[in-house]
Design a protein around this nucleic acid. Structure first.
Length: 449
DNA sequence: GATCAGGAACACG
DNA sequence: CGTGTTCCTGATC
């Protein structure tokens, strides 16, 4: 059994697009393919093809696939047969092979020296004995591509859910309002290096957006346009596949975040709560590297806590989300284990290759928003005053500053400096003071709501 | 004293 | 160049 690490949606939407559109029925392949979050950095794209967002993107997905008699051309074979190559007219990079069952013995990308295993995000545990690898039994040939598609879809669904939660948008692009389109463009624009004012070029409904062709996107932004187009395609396809799956397999996929937002129910659950209470979050035993009873490794909820969701820790993009600034993992290697912090993982970021921990950044406004979106954790420090209008109040300025400092690995961060950064947003139209300026009360500008 | 506003220099990717 | 970070002065609450 071998695994192949590939970059999935966040790193380059066009690559995922190709998977969803063409590669879900891999000839001879796809059996027991599984997708898990992992910031495995692989050179799928040549450097000139790789969008700017790639460097800042996390997570990547790791596709794990058993070695086949006739390996999938996409994942295993030579360049001439590779869909991705055809699509992008390039030679594919060397793929990474690995055998999860003997993983602990194979010095691979997962085993950077000193790299700890991320039991939280659920990567491969080097210490797990083979019998506890968590791999499901081999499936029948007929199930192969279906499983692959299912896995990709699940991973994408989680990523999309995560973004929907953050942006408070509907997962189905065709149903987006103008404002939701705006949010989505802002979010991915950040990742794709879209020019300022890009949202002005996308003042339309989701339905209109979905009707735009690649050329339309290119016209709106030569560089970022194709990425927007591909990313939208990923969303659309994920939505279709999800609907198709629901048709065949019972109840619809409940988007917990989105539903909770739409129905304006109680405050968002914690991620762990989601994992236990919501069908939208994948069950723990849905994951490949789940914990076997009695093991020292807790069940890794791979998608439960999508990378980047942890405001105190880097998430993807910020440069997303990944997603775009879904973020800098160097931030994990610092300080306090102060029990006051709502997290227990204050060590380094287990499961993330060192090279993935270097280049990502998070924007302050997004960090604040992520804090605000987890009131159950942070409302002691920062909370919405008027969520609809984006007005929020910093209740505990030293604490918020400390969290920000942690996040940026700036131990000397204080509220004076943080507020200076916030004030930089006035000119950029991201955050402003409220009309009746009150201390510690700020307001997100409409485009960033 | 804490917060706010904004200038300026600087770091970093 | 964009996004902060750091330091600063002066004003306001």
């Amino acid at each position: 059994m071998s695994s192949v690490a590939i970059a999935a949606s966040s790193p380059d939407p066009r690559f995922v697009q190709s998977i969803l559109m063409e590669d879900t029925h891999l000839p001879g392949g796809g059996a027991n393919c599984h997708v898990t979050y992992s910031t495995v950095k692989t050179e799928i794209m040549s450097s000139e093809e790789r969008p700017l967002s790639y460097e800042n993107s996390s997570p990547c997905y790791t596709l794990l696939q058993p070695m086949q008699q006739n390996p999938s051309p996409v994942l295993f074979s030579g360049p001439s047969e590779v869909q991705v190559q055809r699509r992008f007219d390039r030679s594919p990079p060397p793929l990474i092979f690995d055998d999860p069952r003997t993983y602990q013995n194979s010095p691979r990308i997962f085993e950077e020296p000193g790299l700890k295993v991320d039991t939280h995000f659920g990567d491969i545990s080097p210490s797990l004995p083979p019998q506890h690898s968590g791999f499901p039994p081999q499936t029948q040939p007929g199930q192969q591509s279906e499983n692959f598609e299912e896995s990709v879809l699940k991973a994408l669904q989680e990523e999309i859910d995560h973004i929907c939660h953050i942006l408070e948008i509907c997962p189905d692009p065709t149903k987006w309002t103008n404002q939701e389109v705006n949010k989505w463009i802002v979010w991915y624009g950040d990742q794709f290096g879209a020019p300022q004012g890009i949202t002005d070029r996308f003042r339309m409904s989701g339905e209109e957006l979905c009707r735009l062709t690649l050329e339309d996107f290119k016209q709106k932004s030569k560089d970022a346009g194709p990425n927007f187009h591909a990313q939208l395609d990923v969303w659309k396809n994920a939505c279709k596949l999800s609907a198709r799956r629901e048709q065949h397999s019972g109840p619809p996929h409940p988007n917990y975040y989105y539903n909770s937002y739409r129905h304006n129910s109680v405050s968002s659950p914690t991620i762990s709560e989601c994992s236990e209470t919501s069908g939208a979050m994948m069950r723990r035993d849905d994951y490949i590297f789940h914990q076997s009873a009695g093991s020292d490794y807790p069940s890794p909820p791979i998608m439960q806590q999508p990378v980047g969701f942890h405001p105190e820790y880097p998430s993807q993009n910020e440069a997303i989300p990944s997603y775009s600034d879904y973020y800098s993992y160097t931030d994990y290697n610092f300080y306090d284990n102060n029990s006051d912090t709502p997290f227990t993982q204050t060590d380094d970021l287990p499961g993330y290759p060192v090279e993935c921990q270097q280049k990502q950044t998070i924007h302050l406004w997004r960090f604040l928003k992520e804090l605000l979106l987890q009131p159950e954790r942070y409302d002691r420090y920062i909370r919405w005053v008027n969520r609809q209008e984006g007005i929020f109040k910093i209740e505990d300025s030293p604490k918020v500053a400390k969290l920000w400092g942690k996040r940026k690995n700036r131990p000397a961060m204080n509220y004076d400096k943080l507020s200076r950064s916030i004030r930089q947003y006035y000119r950029k139209g991201i955050i402003k003071k409220t009309a009746n300026s009150k201390r510690l009360v700020y307001q997100f500008c409409p485009a960033y709501l």
